[in-house]
Design a protein around this nucleic acid. Sequence first.
DNA 1: CTAGGGTTAG
Length: 336
Amino acid sequence: MVLMRCARMLFDVSLNRDVVTWNAVLNGYVKCGDVGSAKKLFDEMPERNAVSWSVMINGYVKVGCFKEALEIFNEMQRSGVRPNHAGIVGALSACGSLGALDQGKWIHAYVDRSKMELDTVLGTALIDMYAKCGSVEAACRVFEDMSRRDVYAFTSLISGLSNHGDSVMAVELLKRMGDEGIKPNEVTFICILSACARVGLVDEGLRVFESMNDVYGIKPEVEHYGCLVDLLGRAGLLEQAKDVVRDMPMEPDIYVLGALLNACRVHGDADLGNEMVEGLVSRSLDHSGVHVLLSNIYASANQWDRVERVRKGMVEKDVKKVPGCSLIKEGNVEKE
DNA sequence: CTAGGGTTAG
């Protein structure tokens, strides 16, 4: 933040300001997450090239303003500047988040028409866009069209297949990665494990979890334990899920416990849910989502007096939580 | 080659 202000001052007094320099400052604002200042500067620029536009597009994507990102992309088309790979990738990512399939298809056609090379980054962006827009078939086609596939491309398709319930294909892709000599990473395993959890492929999921360390040399992190607890919990194997939480080599985080609580809700084990929440409070782990889950557990078990107690406790805790939350957020921003 | 780009459970 402070560095950015210094950079801006230097920029303002410098005499030799070409597009490259303007873009560097523009990019500085975007890196700080300050798209507002970036847009102001962008509007003042005497000359803009493809990089200027792509920085703005990706700046909006980064802060979740996907509509604005697509508006900038369209404006770029009107102004006659040809988009570069980065601009296309940013626009595709916005399409995926908005579920804008038609716009995404148009961009795909544009990529083909202008003979842009389908490299791993552009290919992954297309796979991701199609998968998020609900067209897994198109995502698969792009995947096969690519001349080279890396771990991002594989993981993106695995995630897409998983979200559409095709977990068997997702696990098969893990095997295919081996055939193509691509090493899965920690993100790949999160996608595979959650694919197995979704459709109840318990044995397959357990095998994959074991293989992480044994075959691929990747130490499971807390996120992977969260998937494992979810896998067992959804299948109704509450005791095994509880054992995992007890024996895991690190402190369970809110998602691990959330997965276990959710399993309690689905399988109607209000007592285990209650036991867990007491554990949570004693370790001062707190999250409003836990209270929502807990009250759903009691509701499923027809224990309405307990639902009421959770509701009261929630209100109290949420009031206490507000200053703490804002402190943490400010701390993070100040680090920049 | 440059200022710019892709995957994540709940």
